[in-house]
Computed example of a mutant assay.
Amino acid sequence: MTSAKPLNVLFLCTGNSARSILAEAIMNRVGVGKFKAWSAGSMPAGQVNPHALALLEKLNYPTADLRSKPWDEFSRATNPQAPELDFVFTVCDNAAGEVCPIWPGQPMSAHWGLPDPAAVEGTEAEKAIAFADAYRMLNNRINIFVNLPLASLDSMSLQKRLNEIGKTQGEPKPA
């Protein structure tokens, strides 16, 4: 799997307000030139979680174009202009269990679930820690992914690696 044009990646979560938004921003920064990322949800919240925006802004990510959107935007059945997807990753357990639309192309998919930082109750500091933890896990997984030798992996090997990445919690391991 090698391409002169960036490979298209979609991150899915039910509400598309926190984890998938973080993943979209991270991928578009670390995968620039190699990957183009979007995020969507099965039942979008309609707005990006303010804690996710605050964290991304603190880390100097552009946030003006981030928005909570339905996954129908990426289905050719409802949007003939939808980009052809190369990869689809679910980042929440609910979205992983839902019946997804038919995606354009034949994207490889994997479940990269992690705890929902938006569900954390407590002080502002505790919420900030939850978002920082989600960011760290996604950043680690995405860095491992963008450094995979895609051109030298067959589809079965790549699928195995994608599934393994979804179990990564700590620091990135070499590809």
Rank of each mutant, 00 (worst) to 15 (best):
A82H: 08
P70S: 13
E73W: 11
D93W: 01
D65I: 11
V88S: 01
Q81V: 09
N79S: 03
N94P: 00
K69F: 06
K69R: 11
S68D: 05
R67G: 00
F89N: 11
R76M: 06
T78G: 03
N79F: 02
D86F: 14
S68W: 10
V88H: 05
F89G: 13
L85Y: 09
N79L: 10
D65E: 15
L66S: 13
D93L: 03
D72F: 09
S68G: 03
P83C: 06
P83N: 07
S75T: 11
S75R: 07
C92T: 02
D86W: 13
K69C: 03
D93Q: 10
R76C: 09
N79V: 09
F87Q: 13
F87D: 08
F74N: 09
Q81E: 15
P80F: 02
D72V: 11
F87K: 12
R76L: 08
T90W: 11
K69W: 00
C92P: 02
D86M: 14
A96W: 07
D65H: 15
P70M: 03
T90C: 05
L66N: 10
Q81C: 00
V91D: 13
E84C: 01
F89K: 08
A96D: 06
V88W: 01
T90P: 11
N94G: 09
A77S: 06
P83W: 05
V91Y: 11
R76D: 02
V88G: 07
E84I: 07
A96C: 00
T90H: 04
W71G: 01
F87H: 12
T78H: 04
A96K: 02
Q81H: 12
P80D: 01
A95Y: 13
E84Y: 03
R67E: 07
F74Y: 15
P70Y: 01
A96P: 00
W71K: 05
P83S: 06
S75G: 01
A82D: 00
Q81N: 15
L66E: 10
A96M: 08
R67V: 10
D72H: 13
D72M: 09
D86C: 11
D86K: 15
R67T: 04
P83G: 04
Q81D: 14
A96L: 12
A96H: 09
R67C: 01
P80R: 09
P70T: 06
F89Q: 12
